[in-house]
């Protein structure tokens, strides 16, 4: 190897070392949100209504508000997480997320036809959340419900859309 080539290789090696020394921490820094949850809290069952206030068989839209939620550096209190439909069935209550599993639009209740309808792409669901028609890949997402002392508690969660499997985001 000539002296010139050797010096050239040395320049390349030093430049590469500088690049690596800077690139490795840069990548670790940038990829932080891919490895850690940056928005969290509010996943626990939250009191949303009294059982007595729910009419039997008729869906009622409820806003789920978390007492506390962390969004990166901010600690919010009384944060709206999302909406859900509560359907009372005697002494039991079903909670269905208002987020359409197809593309994430807000599912509405169509009283004349007695079905849930997504206004974006016309997916239709029964009062139990089963898919009746339309492009939605799965039924409406059921949320965990707890009944405690005549109160209804819902654990609100967001799920991946456009997927047959119901997976939390």
């Amino acid at each position: 190897m000539t002296r010139r080539r050797l010096l050239g290789a040395l320049v390349g090696a030093v430049a590469t070392a500088i690049g690596v020394a800077l690139a490795v921490p840069a990548m670790a820094f940038l990829s932080y949100p891919a490895r850690r949850r940056t928005v969290y809290g509010g996943g626990e069952p939250i009191d949303v209504a009294s059982l007595a206030s729910l009419p039997d068989g008729k869906p009622v839209r409820i806003v789920v508000t978390a007492p506390e939620r962390r969004d990166a550096w901010t600690r919010f209190t009384h944060v709206t997480l999302g909406g859900c439909w509560l359907v009372r069935d005697g002494g039991d209550v079903r909670a269905l997320s208002t987020v359409c599993p197809h593309a994430g639009c807000a599912v509405d209740w169509d009283a004349p036809t007695g079905a849930f309808v997504c206004p974006c792409h016309d997916s239709r669901f029964s009062t139990t959340g089963e898919r009746l028609s339309g492009p939605s890949p799965r039924p409406m997402d059921a949320l965990a419900v707890e009944l405690h002392g005549g109160r209804v508690r819902v654990a609100w969660q967001r799920f991946k859309t456009a997927s047959v499997k119901k997976e939390p985001v």
Binding site: R4, L7, G8, V11, V14, A15, A17, I18, A21
Partner: peptide, 21 residues
């Protein structure tokens, strides 16, 4: 410039980065 001054420049850069670290 290549490779004699380039080596000095890149060495100085490495020293600067090392001092910063």
């Amino acid at each position: 410039f290549w490779p004699h001054q380039a080596l000095r420049d890149v060495t100085a850069m490495a020293i600067v980065v090392a001092i910063m670290f």
